[in-house]
Design a protein around this nucleic acid. Structure first.
Lengths: 220, 220
DNA sequence: GTATAATTAGAACGAACGTTCGATAATCCT
DNA sequence: AGGATTATCGAACGTTCGTTCTAATTATAC
């Protein structure tokens, strides 16, 4: 009656009091190694044998820590999302200027992205492979994160008296930032601060000139 | 001595004279159905049995048309890239104004993306699954496409006397455009023209205010 | 109308897949 | 110390994978 259902001893409900049982620590190590492998070969392309090899643990041993490969991806994605949102809220609470709040969002996103590139890539790239409950929950977190940015954008828009689609602005911004996983090279592209400044300048200046609906689209 | 190596009768070298043997037509149908399946389940997640079912052809029958699943993905990606570049060059040759040339690039990209969303998603999402020669060739096409945009950007930059990183500008633009495969909904978001105008406005206005290196990054 | 080429299908290949089982080894509690 | 619990393992399960074999069917050309 041991290995069939470990029931996850320590962590009651992700409490802030860092209980950190050995179980949790070992699991975190596995998640970290698994992130590397998912990053290299993709979720479908990575086999449980690849993952066990990367963790230095036997294939069967892995199933003591989680019940399926799917749940493993879920744990990675959930943890990544929760962490980046935690940091964001921490940073946002000291700033009230609408423009600066958007700049904070951009900086936080890029900083976390570059510091945890593999995890963020797995989050971006294996976006809709999780189905049912697991997929729904991660999709909820994603939606929450999107909502935060959308509110920042709306607030900024009203403060400046601008008119543009917040939805498309936010999604364009996400595209701009998330796409870096396909091209970023630390040796030629700057660090997160530099990137955040450049993208922030471009984006903010871009939306500041927006004019509602009909205006001179002078050809075609 | 039949089914082992079909040697692809009709098309000599992708000539423009539409030879269109029956072989080519049947293959094109298969590629189209395969694109749907790759779009739904991903390259690794889609089995040859899925692909054969979608094409209404037996599993073994597929191998008369191509020699491996990998080559099938290669054919899809290559065809998609070549087509979008063909259309782009056609449209660019009548326009000389640097800004309009960038707008044409954006419009062409978005128009093709939305009209061939599944193929473009497969192109974006299964970007580096092809290895060796196949992967190198597709990467070359991608690089060529990138180069075209980079030159448009440089020309525009010099014409306007601006200073910014063309590389990051181009890659940001690609991110903005390519990311739509994760969110585009024809019922709420506009058509390609509308999207191209909005993204074009935002992006062009954004980079027009660019100032080289040090300027007022006034906090943190 | 039969020889030839084009095209399909059923069954099978070995390899790899995610997962499970029962048995050990390591660790903890008193 | 020693029994309970926690952690790990090798071996195997049944299934599915990409691919190939062989034979049968269909279209085309003489």
């Amino acid at each position: 009656m041991a290995a069939s259902s470990p029931a996850k001893p320590g962590t009651g409900k992700g409490g802030p009091a860092v209980p950190e049982t050995r179980f949790d620590r070992r699991l975190a190590k596995i998640l970290s190694h698994a992130t590397d492998v998912f990053y290299e070969k993709g979720y479908e392309g990575a086999s449980m044998r690849d993952l066990s090899r990367a963790s230095g643990m036997s294939l069967a041993g892995m199933y003591y820590y989680f019940e399926s490969k799917e749940r493993l991806l879920y744990l990675i994605q959930k943890h990544t999302f929760i962490t980046i949102m935690e940091r964001l809220r921490e940073r946002l609470k000291d700033e009230s200027d609408p423009e600066q709040r958007i700049r904070i969002f951009i900086l936080n996103h890029l900083e976390y992205f570059l510091a945890n590139q593999k995890a963020m890539t797995v989050l971006s790239h294996e976006d809709d492979v999780l189905k049912n409950d697991l997929g729904t929950e991660v999709a909820g977190l994603k939606r929450e994160y999107y909502r935060i940015c959308l509110e920042l954008m709306d607030t900024f828009k009203h403060a400046k008296g601008l008119e543009f689609s917040s939805r498309i602005a936010v999604l364009s911004l996400f595209g701009m930032m998330n796409w870096i996983y396909t091209w970023y090279n630390p040796r030629v592209d700057g660090d997160a601060d530099e990137l955040a400044r450049q993208m922030g300048d471009t984006f903010l200046q871009g939306i500041c000139s927006a004019n509602a609906g009909r205006t001179g689209s002078k050809r075609k």
